[in-house]
Design a protein around this nucleic acid. Structure first.
Lengths: 130, 130
DNA sequence: CTACTCGCTTGCATATTGCAAGTTATTGTC
DNA sequence: GACAATAACTTGCAATATGCAAGCGAGTAG
């Protein structure tokens, strides 16, 4: 075990007690924040998210929805039976990532030429506790 | 080519014109923002970043520094010769990610119990154009 | 019956990550 | 002057994650 790792293991966190690190352990990849973006934009069904322009693979979407549910950022609830099908909603914890998304959008508008911002985020979403 | 992909290819962007997507294509992984965090905290040398508590692997650090330089978020400049060694500094483009980091820290303080925020970010860094 | 849709799951090839050891150039120690 | 140490990487390789396409179960529509 090296110095950096032994320092990290002094805490109960997998990598370190840093807030950035622990947030990245949840949202630190190329797809998770796009799922959250879609949910903030009012998409709640698997098929709706599949249709987003990035073309997420179905196994990746499935995996990210599971991880987000486990992390308490979204809840999954049935919207029909026979066959039972689910819709996904952000919890308060998930919705609180909106400022992160907004900061990212602000950065991209300044520094990545040609990006097109999606329609305004809905403000009428209901909070769910997860 | 599916619907989502054909829609994406209507633009010159690899995945879509969404600002979130294009930012994630630069910083969307578990390590890149930690490197930027270290640079904001005043670490400028390879060895200093290696000592951060997360224990980044040396090949990953090397790779991320290269990618960040290519993306224009950092500049590499020699601080000695024989042997030549480099220090890394954020450009204005890189420093502008600070609000994203701050939003992440704010989220983690609200939602991830036990995290410990690092010392204040230095405000006396020089901007470099890259 | 047959075709079709939705919401996934599975198989498999490829790409990325993580760990450890090696390399290069130079300094400091005996 | 030989030898250990240091900084900044690079390389090799096993383990993990991703991307693509096809398959599947439970219905509905014609």
């Amino acid at each position: 075990m090296n110095d950096a790792q032994s320092r990290a293991s002094e805490t109960s966190f997998p990598r370190s007690a840093c807030p950035v690190t622990n947030t990245l352990d949840i949202i630190g990849d190329k797809w998770t924040l796009l799922v959250i973006r879609d949910l903030l934009l009012g998409k709640h069904l698997y098929g709706e998210m599949m249709q987003s322009p990035e073309g997420i693979a179905s196994n990746i979407l499935s995996n990210r929805l599971q991880r987000l549910e486990q992390a308490g950022l979204i809840v999954k609830r049935p919207y029909q039976s026979n066959p039972v099908r689910y819709e996904y909603h952000l919890t308060a914890k998930g919705q609180d990532l909106q400022p992160v998304l907004q900061a990212i959008v602000a950065w991209a508008r300044r520094h990545v030429p040609g990006v097109v911002v999606f329609p305004e985020v809905k403000q009428d979403e209901r909070n769910e506790d997860g």
